[in-house]
């Protein structure tokens, strides 16, 4: 039975590590938003369909003054 003097502190140590992990998670904001992550995992990611790669920097850099009608600066899909 003397083993309890070792096992009990050991068990508490493990519990302490779990608690420390929880405290780290809470302090780094992982429990701030409980709603969005819950739905985010529901979306399966399929491989992105291939699309022509735009000229480098084209979509973003073009400072089109009035974009609503023209789609010239429409950001084009980037291939991964």
């Amino acid at each position: 039975m003397e083993t309890i003097f070792v096992l009990l502190p050991l068990a508490l140590l493990i519990a302490g590590i779990a608690l420390a992990l929880f405290i780290w998670a809470a302090r780094s904001g992982q429990f701030d938003d409980l709603e969005t992550p819950a739905v985010r995992v529901l979306f399966d990611d399929e491989p992105a369909p291939a699309a022509p790669r735009p000229a480098p920097g084209e979509p973003a850099a073009s400072p089109a003054p009035n974009p609503p009608e023209t789609t010239s600066d429409a950001p084009t899909r980037r291939t991964e």
Binding site: T36, V39, R40, F43, A48, P54, P56, G57, P59, A60, P75, T76, R77, R78, E80
Partner: peptide, 12 residues
């Protein structure tokens, strides 16, 4: 959430 978070794929 899904659509908005796709933005990095579409915009360099």
């Amino acid at each position: 959430v899904w659509l908005v978070e796709k933005l990095p794929e579409a915009l360099d």
